[in-house]
């Protein structure tokens, strides 16, 4: 046995340790630091993009906002932005279009998604629940142009035939399409809210002799109401922001709707349809960006309040 061997034995592990050994950095240390920096950049980029986008649309639209006539813009329905002599920029009809379609969409989506969420969270079990959850998420991933296409080619003739009206591209069509589009994501969030209600509440009510329906109505829904409200608000936000499907299904005519069968035009669809035809920097171009700022602020407020409400339910 040579004398060297003793230094490599575990029992003599303390020999040869110096203060410098504690300062040694190996490759793992550098990898760890590099990954930390990288994910920090990824995380912070969301904030940078939000600020960047807001700065960009503000830069393009602020000139219009500074000189516009607020009363004319928000209270008149005349949208003739490219008139040579006297362009008019009333967005009241566009707001009415967006609001009516979103309103109807919620009337369709809320019962659908609430019912769906109750079924998935409280009634379905095992395989049924798993399959349904996957399908609902799949439904949320259908591109909006496909929904618009359904509005154009299926709903349009169906509405004309069923209600005997001249045009099938109207509030009814877009509202139903948008409602079906918003329902999956609302279902998903509402289901999360119902699942977050502790099971011991259900158990307590069941032990007192409540039926399943009584448990849902008297215990689960009241306990989940913040989360459910958040789900509805996210649906509203989705409705405000949706462009392609409403462009295709509303009929796209500037009009304050008097009935479900009137064609309307949405704020978003106006931007999408007109931006390509305007000269960069023109008044019309700036007006469209001003609408963009308006939409951005509204959806931002809706999403923020939805987020705060849902967060409130977790903490409370």
């Amino acid at each position: 046995m040579s004398p060297d061997v003793s230094t490599t034995e575990l029992s003599s592990g303390r020999t040869g340790v110096t203060a410098d050994d504690f300062d040694r950095r190996n490759l793992d240390w550098y990898v760890d630091k590099a990954v930390e920096v990288l994910v920090f950049i990824c995380g912070i980029s969301a904030i940078i993009f939000i600020i960047g986008i807001f700065t960009f649309i503000t830069k393009e639209g602020y000139a219009f906002i500074l000189q516009m006539d607020w009363v004319e813009v928000f209270t008149t329905q005349y949208w003739f932005p490219s008139d040579e002599g006297d362009p008019e920029f009333g967005i009241l009809a566009l707001i009415a279009g967006t609001a009516s379609v979103t309103g109807l969409a919620m009337a369709v989506a809320i019962p659908f998604s609430l019912g769906g969420a109750i079924f998935v969270a409280e009634f379905a079990s095992g395989k049924t629940r798993e399959v349904l959850k996957v399908l609902v998420e799949l439904l949320a991933a259908i591109p909006s142009v496909v929904w618009g296409f359904i509005g154009l080619s299926i709903m349009n003739p169906l509405i004309i035939k069923t209600f005997d009206v001249p045009v099938g591209l109207n509030v009814l069509n877009a509202g139903i399409i948008l409602g079906l589009m918003a329902a999956p994501i609302m279902t998903s969030i509402a289901e999360d809210a119902l699942k977050a209600v502790p099971d011991r509440y259900r158990e307590a009510a069941e032990a007192m002799g409540a039926t399943r329906w009584q448990i849902i109505v008297r215990v689960v829904l009241p306990a989940a109401k913040n989360g459910l409200l958040g789900a509805v608000l996210l649906g509203v936000g989705r409705g405000f922001g949706e462009t392609m499907a409403v462009l295709m299904a509303t009929g796209h005519s500037v009009n304050i709707p008097g009935s479900l069968f009137d064609s309307v035009r949405a704020l978003t669809a106006t931007i999408a349809a007109e931006l390509g035809e305007t000269a960069v920097g023109s008044e019309h171009y700036q007006a469209l960006f001003a609408i963009g700022i308006f939409l951005f602020l509204i959806t931002f407020i809706i999403n923020l309040s939805a987020d705060l409400i849902v967060r409130g339910v977790r903490e409370g």
Binding site: R200, A204, G209, V219, A223
Partner: peptide, 21 residues
């Protein structure tokens, strides 16, 4: 009827579980 069973037989749980009402 399960509901009549539960009416006749009350239960108190390990962890107090008042309803959020």
């Amino acid at each position: 009827e399960l509901i009549q069973v539960r009416k006749q037989i009350g239960m108190v749980f390990q962890r107090p579980n008042p309803l959020p009402l």
